[in-house]
Nucleic acid binder design. Structure first.
Lengths: 195, 195
DNA sequence: TTTTCTTGATTGATCAGTCAATCAAAACTA
DNA sequence: TAGTTTTGATTGACTGATCAATCAAGAAAA
């Protein structure tokens, strides 16, 4: 039943399968055979479309990153100040992004980035964008040094809550995890007002 | 030059080598041959003393955990309230614990714990102890619900800063990472006093 | 001599990656 | 239209490399 124009369909199926496999296993230590099987094709086809395992894994990571990046861009569009920060937090704890499989995949990519320069570069770009996003929104609300620290803290809190989610430890639901970060933000803003 | 009583020496050397290897690689995906080589022995000897790879890795993790646990117990001994919380924070960002290799090893263990029940159990025990430690110290300082949230937040912040350390992102030195958590603690305490 | 420590060599399993062959739609031709 | 060729899609079978685990044998103390 081969038809023309299968390529984009297969690529997408393989990427989705890879993310799911990585998310379930919690690490990049998955076999091509597992991924291909989930996508309903042979390993040879995965190699045909992606070249090698690394390429497929990197494509999967780029997909996860682009997905979050897109959500983030849409969420902050036109927003300023505290509303903008709240939007950033909300996206990170949205049902779509805070899914256990996606969170686990993130953690796996973080680990891999430690010894893969291209992956680290990708993550660095995303981290920088998040940071400047937060900083831009926080600067009108507080002194520069405080804003920098707050941005740093929010980013770290999000990462920490992601880890704890992957381990099924910590706050069980997205809502209370998000509330915890919101609370941190409010504390910083209040402290600044009373100074 | 085999002598008697080598066992403890070799075990220790192999565990140290394993931690170093895991820390450098940033994941548990290290070979017995690598570990044994670092310890200056053959792979066969590693199997002789530890049975299998898993056992050695678990022993390494238990060692890292025991080390931090010991430091923690010593640090909080006799301390109460805010001093106790500060001691907990200080230990987590001490030069010994915040070393890049140790931090990377932690991250690797976190990842592995996602699909290893015994490892998850070990981590869970440690996490609980940390949590109740913080809670016990925070309760006199603030309302119960607030104390719980603060404990949750401090733990998540520490984890988040560990991740960022492993990725060489975020605050570069232990001091400013620790200061960030201290700042969070102070905000919570101040907010409580003014309510 | 016995016991403890140690290893080289080997085995078996797992996997990424390759390749030549198949299949079926699409495009072309008479 | 009917037949033929081309082309993209797809796979099973194979290869080579890596690695955990085993084992029987050797070397040095006791």
């Amino acid at each position: 039943m081969p038809k023309i124009g299968m390529e984009p369909i297969r690529r997408r199926a393989l990427i989705d399968a890879a993310i799911l496999a990585i998310g379930e296993r919690g690490s990049l230590d998955v076999t091509m055979s597992d991924i291909a099987g989930r996508a309903g094709v042979s390993t040879a086809l995965a190699h045909h479309y992606f070249g090698g395992k690394e390429d497929l894994l990197h494509a999967a990571m780029r997909h996860v990153l682009a997905e979050l990046g897109g959500d983030l861009r849409r969420a902050v569009a036109g927003k300023q100040g505290i509303e903008r920060v709240e939007a950033v937090i909300a996206v990170n704890f949205s049902p779509k992004q805070f899914q256990p499989e996606i969170v686990s995949a993130w953690l796996a990519f973080y680990v891999e980035a430690q010894h893969s320069t291209p992956l680290r570069r990708l993550l660095r770009i995303y981290a920088r964008r998040l940071h400047s996003n937060l900083l831009y929104a926080l600067r009108p609300l507080m002194a520069d040094a405080v804003a920098r620290r707050a941005a740093e803290g929010i980013a770290a809190l999000i990462d920490g809550l992601y880890i704890r989610r992957a381990l099924k430890d910590g706050p069980p639901d997205a809502a209370s995890a998000g509330a915890l970060v919101q609370d941190y933000l409010e504390l910083q803003v209040k402290a600044e007002r009373s100074s």
